[in-house]
Design a protein around this nucleic acid. Structure first.
Length: 673
DNA sequence: GCAGCGAAAATATCT
DNA sequence: TTTTCGCTGC
């Protein structure tokens, strides 16, 4: 029976209708984006032009206009970004903003799939496998198909996953991917195709999905099932997509389907900051947006509020070196500021000591440590600095690199939960079975087959396939699994029971077990926040806990730490003072990106992103002498900065200051070496 | 068939 | 520096 519902007409508002004075708080273009009402809009927002601010105020404006918060979908690049935006929106308006549905594409797709996956032949309790699980599967299948014993080298698991994933995300055939990026493996193309097929079937049989599957299956579901599509899209009155430059054609299609009922879409991004091509993102995607929505309103934000003039000049200068030109006219009304400095260190040690010393100087100038960031291309580029910071007891957090929840010991523990949630998850079974002493890949395989056929584990010990050698150990494992199966066990309790079982295993398996046991303790604490097993598993895969190595100083109480971050993880963030270290040719641009102009341009954009993180002062540093396994060798500064004029990027040399001789009672420590 | 050892190879950015 | 591979003894 249809009923009439009175709904406030939320069109035709003027700024005067709102409690928040949007017109006073935003510039003309930002205001236009915030007030934009129905239809499609593309906001091209250069670095530091108030992109996030615009989104936050838009969210607030929509709610003030009477939109139900839960009818707004905010797709962001990380869940951290989404949380921060909703926090900010709540702070300027009210707590209603927390009811907005926000998250990454993967996260949102996952929620859709858990609701409707049976229509695709997947049970609702499918589990998600991360990259390292996917690699394990590929390795297993590669061996099973005997592709590891070929006379001509067959691609390894990393390459295989990269080929398969690229094909999915770029909408290419495997043949096209191999032909364009891995020509040396063209001879194996049929085997690669076979392996991809077997991999796909394996995941289906085990009721698991990898990251790409979350997108692919959601797309398939929405394309083929009109009921689901209407259900999903009807709930999305307004769709906002952040960081659109880092989406791909697949995600463009998803956005189109998510918004297929109300057709209100706003995409926000900056083509000059596209840095995720390795994941299949295509910076041209953002320019194709108006092609998908012919009525698209294009709004361009060009006034930079973040950086001083000299930083912006350098940023513009860096971007000019791109092979593919960008029409960027970023300007600022801020003061010129200091010239960005190019600091040459003799080696990595000296670079680290310089950074540490500068950081301490800034701290003495009353600057909070977390107003300072050190950025780098690769996670390992900060290892030496981390040692130095540790020595000087400078607290820091590190973003990027190995994630806490991706560490082997955490994955071991989670695998126990996975088999309870999804008995068909052979990857998890394999993991926990081979942890049992006496069980290797062969026996694990046989046990998994048995579980697959019998659909339960209750009689496995009596089945006659268990040999005496590991019977005792295995019975402990099944007793544990049995004890955490009930509905009355909280996730935290379950994890504690798993830990009691796992700790001795961990001590045996890892030499560095003291550190890992500590991790497990804190992991146990994290689990208190969850109510369902599935929730822990999904959350930790889709939003892994950052490996935040904190160099804590017992004496000083909770000082805000210095930020170390990969450039990728620094996307969207900003600091007063920014150091970009290891700015070397072969590091940025990466040694793997030197061949193709396309790859080189992406590395350049990466440096552009790094440079535009700085508000006040920017230092770019590089060592002349680099240590490696093979010894020392001389290096060249990054080609992206080498040709930049001294008047834009000022070169500096480090000169060791002679310290006055140590006097008795002087507690000053000598610098090492 | 498992576990442990030493040699050889590869080596990023992230959902 | 870490991961992978192949070999050996149990």
């Amino acid at each position: 029976m249809k009923k009439f519902v009175l709904r406030r007409d939320d069109t035709g508002h003027t700024a005067a209708d709102f409690t928040i004075p949007y017109a006073d708080l935003l510039n003309e273009q930002q205001l236009e984006a915030v007030m934009f009402d129905r239809g499609a809009a593309l906001v091209i927002a250069g670095a530091g032009t108030g992109k996030t601010r615009t989104l936050v105020y838009r969210v607030s404006r929509l709610i003030e206009s009477g939109a139900d918060p839960s009818s707004i979908l905010l797709l962001t690049f990380t869940r951290r970004a989404s949380r921060e935006m909703l926090d900010r929106a709540s702070a300027i308006l009210d707590a209603r903003c927390h009811r907005i549905r926000g998250g990454t594409f993967h996260y949102y797709c996952n929620t859709i799939l858990h609701r409707y996956s049976t229509r695709l032949g997947f049970p609702e309790n499918f589990t998600i496998i991360d990259t390292s699980d996917a690699l394990d599967v590929l390795q297993l299948l590669r061996t099973e198909l005997k592709f590891n014993k070929l006379s001509q080298r067959f691609p390894n698991k990393n390459t295989l996953l990269s080929i398969i994933s690229t094909a999915v995300n770029r909408r290419m055939t495997l043949h096209e991917v191999v032909d364009s990026r891995f020509e040396q493996f063209l001879v194996h193309i049929e085997r690669i195709e076979q392996l991809a097929e077997v991999y796909s079937r394996y995941k289906h049989q085990n009721k698991v999905m990898d990251f790409d599957d979350l997108l692919v299956y959601t797309l398939k579901l929405l394309q083929t099932d009109a009921d689901v599509r209407n259900d999903v899209a009807a709930a999305n009155r307004y769709v906002l997509v952040d960081e659109y430059q880092d989406t791909n054609a697949l995600q463009a299609d998803l956005v189109n389907l998510f918004s297929s009922v109300h057709r209100n879409v706003m995409a926000v991004g900056d083509d000059a900051q596209s840095i995720y091509a390795f994941r299949g993102a295509d910076h041209r995607n953002i320019m194709q947006f108006p092609g998908i929505y012919p009525e698209t309103k294009i709004i361009t934000l060009e006034q930079n509020y973040r950086s001083v003039g000299n930083v912006l000049t350098l940023a513009n200068n860096v971007l000019e070196h791109a092979k593919q030109k960008y029409e960027k006219k970023l300007f600022t009304q801020r003061e010129e500021g200091e010239l960005p400095a190019l600091v040459r260190a003799s080696d990595e040690r000296e670079q680290s000591r310089f950074i540490a010393q500068m950081v301490l100087n800034l701290r003495e100038q009353e600057l909070s440590l977390n107003d300072v960031a050190v950025l780098f291309r690769n996670s390992r580029d900060s290892f030496d600095l981390e040692i130095e910071l540790g020595k000087r007891k400078i607290p820091y957090v590190k973003y990027g690199g190995q994630k806490f929840s991706e560490a082997a010991h955490i994955k071991d523990v989670l695998a126990h939960l996975r088999v309870v949630v999804n008995m068909d998850d052979a990857i998890a079974w394999n993991r926990i079975l081979t942890l049992v002493e006496g069980i290797g890949p062969k026996t694990a395989g046989e046990l998994i087959d048995w579980i697959n056929i019998n659909r339960n584990t209750d009689q496995i010990l009596e089945s006659g396939i268990i040999s005496g050698k590991y019977r005792e150990n295995l019975s402990k494992l099944f007793a544990l699994l049995h004890s955490i199966r009930g509905d009355d066990i909280s996730p935290a309790e379950a994890v504690d029971r798993i830990l009691a079982y796992y700790k001795p295993v961990c001590e045996k398996k890892f030499d560095d077990y003291p550190k890992r046991l500590k991790d497990l303790e804190s992991f146990s604490g994290i689990c208190i926040n969850f109510t369902r097993y599935q929730q822990i598993l999904d959350d930790l895969v889709l939003d892994p806990i950052e490996a935040t190595v904190v160099g804590s100083e017992p004496g000083k109480k909770d000082e805000e730490p210095l930020v170390l971050s990969t450039i990728h993880s620094a996307k969207g963030l900003e600091w007063e003072h920014v150091f970009i270290i290891q700015c070397l040719d072969g590091v940025i641009p990466s040694g793997y990106a030197l061949e193709l102009d396309e790859d080189l341009d992406e590395e350049l954009r990466l440096l552009y992103v790094a440079v535009t993180r700085a508000r006040e002062q920017l230092y770019i540093t590089y060592p002349v002498l680099q240590q490696s396994v093979y010894g020392e060798f001389f290096t060249k500064p990054s080609r992206f900065i080498d040709t930049i004029s001294d008047k834009i990027l000022e070169p500096w040399m480090l000169v060791e200051e002679k310290e006055p001789p140590m006097l008795p009672g002087d507690d000053r420590k000598m610098l090492p070496e």
